[in-house]
């Protein structure tokens, strides 16, 4: 295993990302409104938190830098192979990314198509993706679960959930 594949190296990269994040958020806080009569400004508390995060990121950075440059003993847990997020070398990661994209689409379509339809679609796609091939079962479960959930929320908890094209179903249930 190469050094760049160890957990220590991954930690090093993480801490660099975090440092960038901290600098960015700190710059953001300087733009917060200043309240004349206040003893503690709205920006103060976030700034303390960013500073705290910064201190421990630096610690993590130094720790991992030392481990990467000086080498580690073989029992160090940071000497193990790090997890990967490269979708081109790991098909599992590619699938995870695909699910994430589906979830974003889901959010986008939630009130356009309605809960039941998008949920059924996403369920069927994911089931197919992870290797379920019993189509009758897939369609049945995918439609029934959101339908039952919707019914419980709507009828028992009187929570109104967007139904999109299935809106007439709500009027139908009202009539019963």
């Amino acid at each position: 295993m190469k050094k760049t594949q160890s957990k220590a190296f991954a930690n090093l990269i993480c801490s660099l990302f975090l440092l960038a994040f901290e600098v960015w958020t700190y710059i953001e806080t300087t733009g917060f409104r200043i309240h004349k009569r206040a003893h503690v400004q709205p920006a103060t508390f976030p700034q303390i938190m960013i500073t705290g995060m910064f201190i421990f990121t630096v610690i993590l950075f130094v720790q991992s830098l030392l481990k990467v440059t000086r080498g580690m003993n073989e029992f160090d847990p940071d000497n193990e192979m790090s997890a990967s997020i490269n979708p081109f070398t790991h098909k599992g990661v590619a699938a995870a990314f695909f699910v994430i994209i589906l979830c974003i689409l889901y959010t986008y379509l939630f009130d356009r198509l309605g809960y039941v339809l998008v949920s059924a679609c996403i369920s069927i796609i994911i089931m197919w993706l992870i290797g379920k091939r019993n189509f009758v079962m897939m369609i049945l479960v995918s439609f029934l679960v959101p339908l039952i959930m919707w019914f419980i929320f709507y009828k028992l908890l009187t929570v109104n959930i967007p139904m999109g094209m299935l809106q007439p179903l709500r009027d139908f249930v009202d009539k019963l």
Partner: peptide, 15 residues
């Protein structure tokens, strides 16, 4: 079966 359970957890949780 996990292949059924994960999508169900997903849609129930998002709701």
């Amino acid at each position: 079966e996990k292949k059924m359970l994960y999508p169900i957890i997903l849609v129930v949780s998002l709701l």
